[in-house]
Amino acid sequence: MTAPIVRRLAELRALTARWRAEGARIGVVPTMGALHAGHLSLVEAAKAGADRVIVTIFVNPRQFNNPDDLANYPRTEGSDAAKLAPFAVDAIYVPAPDQVYPEGFATTVSVSGVSEGLCGAHRPGHFDGVATVVTKLLLQTQADRAYFGEKDFQQLMVVRRLVRDLGIPVEIVGCPTVREPDGLALSSRNVRLGHTARAKAPALFAALTRAVKEMSEGAPVGQALGEARAAVLAGGYSDVEYLEFRSAATLAPLQALSEPARLLVAAHLDGVRLIDNVPAVPQRAAAFAPS
């Protein structure tokens, strides 16, 4: 069943008011469209954790620092709706720009700390755009739970911080990265990879997993990172934008695997910027983790 497509905020609010009067718990999956299996895994999680589910599709101009990226971002509303049909979501919110940024809009949500470094250092203004639109969408949908993928781990941390700092009454649910059988993290950007580049792309995940294994076995962080960077470049990537080892709780840089951590990377292949990350857990913590 194809869900109703809602384009006006007033219509959305009428729906959510009715659902709230029924005592329903509302879940939202914010997206920019071009849906793939990673997005659909978030929808599946939302269906399991909420009574009513809204998927938002909005290509947010405020998080693009490159006008060409914004112009080239795929708009696939029809196929997105078809992909969502089997999940029987309750609404697809596809707002016109003026429903998110009305005339004279002059407010920006800026999250310091976790937005700095990593993607924040290379994409000026990106996380301000993310934080602003997510704040708007959480307030507009009146969601009780919002679902985000862990592939963009820094974005997830930014969203968690803004919700906590602003006191927005929504639970942020992080969901595991979905991968191709060869390990490549699913991304809307993957379709831009040529055949040869696509064959090389799994080198990124392979280098990350090897580095985490080495660190868990006692290798120095600097050595493991150096070897991982070399492996990514040897695998065919033209540039490693960053490759950093950070705390999973705060995103502070780490010099040793002393607490739950993330190894995060951004690299360029065939002119396409790809990001990924993998978790790392100290051996003692891993030994006592529930099975």
Results as ranks from 00 to 15, higher is better:
Glu11Asn: 09
Leu12Glu: 09
Arg18Asp: 07
Arg18Ser: 07
Glu22Ile: 05
Glu22Asp: 15
Thr31Arg: 04
Gly33Cys: 03
Gly33Val: 00
Gly33Lys: 04
Ser41Thr: 11
Val43Ser: 10
Ala45Arg: 14
Asp51Val: 08
Arg52Pro: 15
Val53Gln: 03
Ile54Ala: 05
Thr56Arg: 06
Gln63Phe: 11
Asn65Leu: 02
Asn65Ile: 05
Arg75Gly: 01
Gly78Thr: 05
Ser79Asn: 12
Asp80Pro: 10
Asp80Gln: 08
Pro86Asn: 14
Phe87Val: 02
Phe87Thr: 00
Val89Tyr: 01
Ala91Val: 02
Gln99Arg: 12
Phe105Arg: 11
Ala106Tyr: 03
Val111Ile: 10
Ala121Trp: 00
His122Trp: 05
His122Leu: 12
Val134Glu: 07
Thr135Cys: 08
Lys136Gln: 13
Leu137Cys: 02
Gly149Glu: 07
Glu150Arg: 12
Leu156Gly: 11
Val158Gln: 13
Val158Leu: 14
Arg160Phe: 04
Leu162Trp: 09
Arg164His: 13
Leu166Tyr: 01
Pro169Val: 01
Pro176Arg: 15
Pro181Tyr: 15
Ala185Gly: 03
Arg189Ala: 01
Gly194Arg: 07
Gly194Phe: 06
His195Gly: 09
Lys200Phe: 00
Ala201Gly: 06
Leu204Ile: 12
Phe205Lys: 00
Arg210Tyr: 08
Val212Leu: 03
Gly218Thr: 07
Pro220Thr: 05
Gly222Lys: 13
Leu225His: 11
Gly226Val: 11
Gly226Tyr: 12
Arg229Ala: 14
Ala230Thr: 14
Val232Tyr: 12
Ala234Asn: 12
Gly235Val: 00
Gly235Ile: 01
Gly236Trp: 00
Ser238Glu: 15
Val240Asp: 10
Leu243Asp: 10
Glu244Gln: 12
Thr250Ala: 14
Leu263Trp: 05
His268Thr: 05
His268Ile: 09
Arg273Glu: 02
Leu274Asn: 03
Asp276Ser: 04
Asn277Thr: 05
